[in-house]
Design a protein around this nucleic acid. Structure first.
Lengths: 219, 219
DNA sequence: AGGTCTTGCTTACGACGTAAGCGTAAGAGA
DNA sequence: TCTCTTACGCTTACGTCGTAAGCAAGACCT
């Protein structure tokens, strides 16, 4: 009879599956993302998802790329330094908004289209700044590691190493201070400003790239 | 009677459990490390392991620290630059020998004693080079990320992105080259020498640290 | 000799990823 | 309008996982 009958329950699609999984991970952590749970959140059985996703790995890869797709695009109107800063900071803040994503992105080998777009933008920026292709390639890897892995470390420390067997307090006094003197001394006085640290390394990369550009050009 | 009777089957211990798990991971990959399989490789039931390991997370954390414990110690007889290079390269090569370890180390929050010793050595080196405690702290994080995450990326690319949905060849021609022009152009000419890239970033870090030391001292 | 502690084993539970096959509804061709 | 194909979601089932609970037997101390 009514030809649009099934609209009582919106039709499934890869995008809807991925979106549901991302939402689940955002709200209840990555461990909450199982085929069954994603199914439940869509009002559907687990096995139905397999029509739209090859397997769980494919789903996880899709989630990662979904998040990376939210990275801002390159601003071509500014100098390469500022352009690179924009790309890196934008990626950083998106990753912070989805704390499970950095870990997934670093731990799995697949590279989706959004990630390719991102590295393309980074390389484009570096080339525009005068890098040789080889230098742009190497620097891109360094930038990628900074974006994904530094952010990941930041997120881990944010939860606090305190929670995981080696509390900070214990390190700063007694046996800890004796066994790891430099670390203890440093932790005692250093500030733990994630943003500042992230920027510190970013500038460190930029300065290094700058130098590599000029030495390769100048001879 | 004989008080040392049970030696027919060497007694279990945390170290033996960890060693068996590490060996399993080395030989058959991290996925092969399940409580039951580790048990089998020790001639023991899975549940027996729980006398020596709190749970599986504890086992994984132990494996990571076991590998990190093999990192070479700091050479205090050379300058800070060479000392840092030694630490980083030593860590790098140990991680390459246990391909599963870098991924585990970056993905889990716990920090064991061996890792603390490692970062203590790094910080000691940096302080000896004239870093302020704050700078040593920040630079240490950058070094840690380089050691663990850059190595991890290297291992992932070694298996080849080719295997995972976005083959290199496809990128270099046709649609790939159109969608990601800078990336395609760069990949076409760049060499992929992991060692060189690792050294490139290491020197980049050292130069940056050097500069940060001198600017903070000089005012 | 009797009691306690240690250590490994047995059994069992719930959750996971997913292979195989079924029923049904939508859309195309006659 | 009627059939035929195709796409989609569901059902059932299997093997594997981590681990809770409790038992049994040897080691050690008194």
């Amino acid at each position: 009879m009514n030809p649009r009958r099934r609209a009582q329950r919106a039709v499934l699609s890869r995008d809807r599956v991925l979106a549901a999984a991302v939402e689940l991970a955002d709200e209840h952590g990555l461990d909450a993302v199982s085929m069954r749970r994603v199914g439940v959140s869509l009002g559907v059985e687990a096995m139905s998802l397999y029509r739209h996703v090859h397997n769980k790995d494919d789903l996880l890869d899709g989630m990662v790329d979904d998040v990376i797709a939210r990275f801002p695009a390159r601003d071509e109107a500014v100098g390469w330094r500022e352009s690179l800063r924009g790309l890196v900071r934008g990626a950083h803040s998106v990753l912070l908004a989805h704390p499970w994503a950095a870990g997934l992105a670093t731990s799995r080998p697949a590279v989706g289209p959004a990630r390719l777009r991102f590295v393309d933008a980074v390389i484009g920026t570096l080339l525009a700044g005068g890098c040789s292709p080889q230098l742009a390639h190497d620097a891109m890897h360094a930038v990628e590691v900074h974006v994904f892995a530094f952010t990941l470390q930041e997120l881990r420390l944010q939860v606090g190493p305190s929670a995981h067997g080696y509390p900070l307090d214990e390190l700063l006094s007694g046996a800890g201070a004796a066994a790891y003197p430099h670390l203890a001394a440093t932790l005692a006085v250093a500030e733990h400003d994630h943003v500042a640290e992230f920027e510190f390394v970013l500038e460190l990369l930029i300065v290094g790239i700058e130098r590599a550009i000029s030495t390769s050009v100048g001879g």
